[in-house]
Design a protein around this nucleic acid. Structure first.
Lengths: 157, 157
DNA sequence: ATTAACTGTTTACCTATGTAACAAACTCGA
DNA sequence: TCGAGTTTGTTACATAGGTAAACAGTTAAT
């Protein structure tokens, strides 16, 4: 019995699955690094990643509704309220009444919001350029394509 | 309603968002997909990703200390207490007194812990095999290498 | 012999999410 | 046109995962 246990230990060590070979583990560690660097790059009073995403989509698609925005971001409507509150509080967008549907309030970026977006996207690009500076253009393109492939697999349906 | 949705999608897809070209955004979305599928694959009473990681490292490095484990996992010592509590509560490991240093309690996997690890790693591999089934072996190897490259950049300090 | 450093732990907090309920507003078939 | 069903924004609550600070006990350094 004890011998069996020792035997098992040896077997398991030999064929022990490495965390290092798992996509999930590597994806998480990599995500944390990028996320932390993002935060650091945007500073104390900078936008958080999710608020930045919401601002980006609002600038890109003016008059988008909160439900549509939530759907695009892959989060719940309820979670978006605080995000939009923050952007409205910073004077980056307005909730505007829509005459044809009084339930919705279209999100309209302000000039201030567009300016902050431009500043922030520049900072984000600089942060990514720096963080990924030891990858070739080809590697970057490949990485992006493979990440999108995961997304396609998971976001279909 | 279906008509409206189609109209909206067509409008929004005319031009791709800045976000789609960012590593951070794609990394986050991809991570969420893999994470959710992991959870789903391991079921209601399955191990969470972080508990699984801790178990994996404990099985691989018996007699590891909590501080060392926390360092390996990239989290704080304080955060590890609940994780080790859970594994101890499930009978997967024991905190064992070390005579040469009475501060530390070495983490020793039990037979039960090793067995659960084997079962779980098999389920995790099956989940990843399924989720990444539309990637070639070459693509998988490349993706893993690129994620490790991000980690190397970020974890050097 | 002190002083500094480390270990595991508790406690308090924070961030980012999800779930459930809700009233108001809208849609659509009978 | 009525009523059932659905959608929207919102709130309140729950949860998961993590940090930061303090702590007593222990060890190491000089």
């Amino acid at each position: 019995m004890a011998k069996q246990t020792i035997q098992r230990v040896a077997d398991f060590d030999l064929e022990s699955s490495d965390l290092e070979e798992l996509f999930g583990y590597n994806l998480k560690r990599a995500y944390i690094i990028v996320q932390n660097d993002f935060r650091e790059a945007l500073g104390q009073d900078g936008l958080s990643a999710r608020v930045f995403s919401a601002l980006s989509l609002t600038v890109k698609y003016p008059n988008i509704t909160q439900s549509e925005l939530a759907r695009m971001m892959g989060i719940e409507r309820s979670g978006l309220v605080a995000i939009v509150d923050e952007l409205e509080g910073r004077g980056c967008l307005s909730r505007v009444q829509v005459p044809t549907d009084r339930r919705v309030q279209a999100l309209v970026p302000t000039d201030n919001g567009r300016r902050l977006y431009q500043e922030t996207i520049a900072a984000v690009r600089a942060h990514e350029d720096r963080l990924f500076s030891d990858m070739t253009e080809s590697e970057k393109t490949t990485l992006l394509a493979l990440l999108k492939k995961i997304r396609q697999k998971g976001e279909q349906e």
